[in-house]
Design a protein around this nucleic acid. Structure first.
Length: 105
DNA sequence: ACGTTGACCATTC
DNA sequence: AGAATGGCCAACG
């Protein structure tokens, strides 16, 4: 079934997240034009099968890892692979790594 | 720190 | 069409 425009918007935003940086579901929702659609972003991510979208760079608020479809440990590993230091369920220097799109990429 | 509650949105049943 | 679900978020108790 064809994805909704908002889904594509969300995917587009996530695609723009630079390596080594992260964004929260809320941020992605905001950048996608629906500041309150944080949940929808989760749903879209969970169902999105687009390999171009590094959904592992999308984390929960407060620097928490959030979840991941099948393997949450994989998300952690992927982030670590991009120099993002993850401690337990939390990201170190999250505030610094957080990409809000309004800054320089 | 933890569970609950309210709110918002897309997708799936 | 209506209800339930989900990788949420923030506020409250």
């Amino acid at each position: 079934m064809p994805p909704s425009p908002f889904s594509l918007r969300v995917l587009a935003v996530v695609r723009r997240i630079p390596p080594g940086r992260v964004a929260t579901y809320g941020d992605v929702a905001r950048l996608a034009g629906r500041p309150l659609a944080c949940r929808a972003v989760g749903t879209i991510m969970a169902r999105a099968a687009d390999p171009n979208v590094p959904c592992h760079r999308v984390v929960a608020a407060g620097g928490r890892l959030g979840g991941y479809g099948n393997e949450p440990a994989l998300k952690r590993a992927l982030l670590r692979a991009e120099r993002v230091v993850v401690s337990g369920n939390r990201i170190r220097a999250f505030s610094a790594l957080r990409w809000q799109g309004s800054r320089n990429s």
